[in-house]
Design a protein around this nucleic acid. Structure first.
Lengths: 346, 346
DNA sequence: CTGAAAGCGCTTACAG
DNA sequence: CTGAAAGCGCTTACAG
């Protein structure tokens, strides 16, 4: 065998070392590379016969287009940057899975720019430009205005999930205010009067809006919060907040934690103190992460419409990739009450 | 203003619309583009003076290299594909965060090819080729031999985390067999004799090796398993397995769940049945995810050396990107016992 | 130490 | 309906 890299088992010589290109196809088909390119991209002007021949050869040669080369000329990479935040909160991994699912449906890939709550280095944002990313998706409750600014300066469309956009970009969120109201209404209807609230990360719209909605409905019923604690949007934060409440001997009917992961901590702290949920105290969360439906918690919560959020976010992103001059939009999608057993009913 | 896109506020005309390129720099510096390229890449042959001048201009023009163009000629994209598996198990999101951290340290980015346990479509693997990815990292316990095969055929180096490589690629794992032995030894030393094992996903080396190690040490002590259940590597699987054990009235001192997320389910099932951990029954896990240290579980477990695994995985990947002919290697890193309170001591 | 030239693999006006 | 030519923004032998 003097040409060990040629595979003739298909009855066709096929070189595995050198990949097939528009050039190799054009030579084999006896047409120009322009024609090959057009045929491959479904350009209507190419005759059916030529197209068929080109496609057949492309298939035979196992042709895979070189996205780098294409991007260089089209100035579209087909890749979107992804920043994903507080990965300790299962909400984000679950969101990530949905994102990837919807991405694979459309013609997009994403490049991971950042994971976790730590702040984003300038340098990371740089790859955004180097790789000519078409846009950027930021799924995080905390502030990344630096990236937003860089993207804006370079006319890279940005869509935030789970956060209201600051200035220029788009945001898709659950209607956290309305959700907070729902939670509040449900608790009050259930007869609870002495209610504590465990807040999430300070200065995030997610936490603030849920709290604001909750308080609004509460005050409409002429009620006020019996207590308020910071829970930092973590399990341990929720746990500590509830322990505090207990240590301070605050008399309570119920606790509303601004998200499920904190609610889980709250429930565990209650049990630790010998209280039973919901018999002795009700607990409610927000998000409807998977763990909310575990029998141990069986958490009554407000479900975020994750799929709808992801869909709309991708829509917005696509629209702005097509037409970068479009104005920023914020979309709020209503979440719904998921009633389980952690809130005692009358 | 007839040239609204020129920003002269810096005292330098700076066009935000057209990005700076080697060309614009070369014109401004009065040298060739070759020289610009070399200066930018730290080629030793360029004089200090020229380099300084080029660098200054590049900085002034806010030059960002076009990675697409570079990749086209170097045939190196600087991007690695990432497949991440069972995202319901917090181990994977936690691993992801570490991966991203170590990635940002080195000169690599990654493109998300797949998230979740569902099987990988052929099409997804295609982007691997289209984008000329330099390698692929697969973090998943389940089998993705299809990707492995595609990568092999196209000489794309693959490194698996948490799984022994099938045929050609590299694998980096915790030494699951040794870890299983550790767990077993610890339980036996603690005086447990009637032990049940909850297995993970069938046919995964992770689960099988942990089980095999566990059984080996057990049999060295002339002991056998009191029961064995499948737990499918999920919380609900662990819960169901333990409920089964209880329903069948199996007399038990302890349960070893092959991973933490199942162990959490086991503990919750025990409590549901009124048993106390560890007083009435001991439970041990494997992985040391964050939830293992939550007070509710305070799970004794075997900690996977995640950072070391990630480091070695990236090393292997780099080496094989440099020299694709290198033989596959498997690296097993020893985990360590993390003793908490879920296993009763004598 | 530096430059002219060629080329990576595509796409896209411009002609015909 | 198809092709020749130019070019996207880089890098890299090859000369000098």
């Amino acid at each position: 065998m003097d040409k060990p890299d040629r595979d003739t088992t298909l009855g066709e010589t096929h070189d595995f070392r050198r990949r097939s290109t528009v050039r190799t196809i054009s030579e084999r088909a006896g047409v120009s590379t322009s024609t090959v390119s057009r045929a491959l991209n479904g350009d209507g002007r190419i005759s059916a016969k030529t197209r068929a021949s080109v496609l057949a050869i492309a298939h035979e040669q196992r042709y895979t287009p070189n996205a780098m080369a294409r991007s260089l000329v089209t100035r579209r990479s087909g890749v979107v940057g992804l920043v994903i935040g507080e990965v300790d909160n299962p909400f984000y991994p679950e969101l990530l899975a949905r994102l990837q699912f919807h991405f694979s449906t459309r013609e997009l890939r994403f490049m991971l720019l950042h994971v976790g709550a730590r702040s984003l280095e300038e340098e990371t944002a740089h790859t955004l430009l180097q790789y000519q990313l078409d846009g950027c998706l930021i799924a995080s409750a905390t502030l990344y205005s630096r990236v937003e600014e860089i993207c804006f300066r370079h006319r890279v469309p940005v869509v935030m999930i789970n956060r209201i956009a600051q200035v220029h970009s788009c945001g898709v969120s659950c209607n956290n205010f309305a959700g907070g109201r729902l939670a509040s209404q449900f608790m009050v209807d259930a007869g609870h009067r002495r209610i504590a609230l465990v807040a999430g990360m300070a200065k995030t719209s997610v936490s603030e809006d849920r709290e604001a909605g909750f308080l609004t409905t509460l005050s409409e019923q002429e009620l006020t919060l019996a207590a308020r604690k910071e829970g930092y949007s973590t399990y341990l934060g929720g746990l500590a907040a509830a322990r505090d409440l207990i240590a301070n001997n605050v008399q309570l009917d119920a606790v509303f934690a601004v998200n499920d992961i904190m609610a889980m901590g709250v429930i565990d702290a209650m049990r630790e103190a010998g209280l039973r949920v919901p018999r002795d105290i009700s607990v409610m969360g927000f998000d409807d992460i998977q763990a909310a439906s575990w029998p141990t918690y069986d958490l009554t919560t407000i479900a975020q419409p994750v799929d709808a959020m992801v869909q709309r976010a991708l829509d917005l992103l696509f629209e702005r990739i097509e037409d970068p001059t479009r104005a920023g939009e914020d979309i709020l999608i209503r979440g719904e009450l998921r009633q389980r057993s952690s809130v005692r009913l009358p």
